[in-house]
Simulated scan of single mutants.
Amino acid sequence: MAHFDKDVIPQIEAVYATLSPTEKVVADFFIHNRRRMDFGAPNIADILHVSLASLSRFAKKIGFAGYREFIYKYKEDLREDTAQTVPDQWSMQALSSYQELLDKSYALVNERQINALSDMLSTYQRIYVYGRGSSGLAAQEMQLRFMRIGSIITAITDSDVMMMNSVLLDDTCLVIAISISGKTPAVIKALRKAKESGARTVLMTSHKSPEQHEYCDEVVLLALRENIEAGKVISPQFPILIYLDILYAHFLQHDSNHKELLHERTLDILQQDATEQEPGEQAE
């Protein structure tokens, strides 16, 4: 049975963005350190050239009463003989499910296909992503992620809109359909229409069948686990998001400087919009 470390590092990483520059110096030290030493506040303050107060503020920001409580837990995590906390059966079931899907996703990675899809995303003028339910949420996530680096992508999750959209398609369009089962009626019907309209078509699914190649130029095989479509233990989106992350990483390498600049500009605009909101107004 696998063991999962429970240490303070994830707690530090979770609040890292909110830390001050000085506190980030302290955070970087504890994140990357893996050896035992004198962790007394005066010694660490001297090593890092920070004040004792900075150490105290750092510890409080990550959820401890003070530096002494933080370092007690940190030193405990460094002990090789420290007994690991084993999650209960429900936590273990979820964690094991995620690990299984990660392993299967690794085995299914097809570099040729990923590079081909990355080229398509760079080439086609209009890109549509179809999906219903959990797959629709993944389609919306894809739209948001790729828009940040300059891609014109539209996620469509309504069955009627998918069919109406087929009228607008031609050979300058790319349609990516997401269906874990490979049988979602509205999505498959719309994908067939897209193919008839001359669009390039891609299906992301966990269930491959010969007839899919009648209306798909590419079939992307996603990791599968029994009953994942029902979402009883983990989110059905998980294997989709794994693949989208891999695809995003490859796509980012095409003209990476330009895309990173677009990404930075997008974040700047979002941050500016957030700071300009009226008092009491909340971002969606």
Rank of each mutant, 00 (worst) to 15 (best):
R192Y: 11
Y16H: 12
R192E: 05
K195Q: 03
M204K: 09
V220E: 01
M120C: 15
A249V: 09
E69T: 02
A190K: 00
K208F: 12
V8T: 00
F39M: 02
Q282T: 14
Q11H: 00
Q93Y: 07
L52N: 10
V50G: 05
M162Y: 02
S105G: 12
I114G: 04
P10E: 06
N257C: 09
A107H: 15
K73T: 11
L52K: 13
S235Q: 00
P239D: 06
R112Q: 14
T123Q: 12
R126I: 11
A2N: 08
R112S: 02
M163G: 03
L168W: 14
I9E: 04
E69P: 05
A155M: 00
L267S: 03
A139I: 07
G198A: 12
G231M: 11
Q125V: 13
D160A: 15
I246V: 14
R79Y: 00
Q143N: 10
D170N: 15
G63P: 00
V161C: 11
T205C: 01
E23I: 08
P279Y: 00
D158H: 15
T85H: 08
L108H: 04
Q93M: 07
E196D: 07
N43I: 14
H250P: 02
K104S: 14
D217V: 06
Q89I: 15
Y67S: 01
H258F: 10
A274V: 04
V86T: 13
R145H: 07
V161M: 14
S54R: 06
Q277R: 15
L52W: 06
Y98M: 12
K208E: 10
H258D: 04
G182D: 07
Q113N: 11
I114E: 05
Q282E: 12
S97C: 10
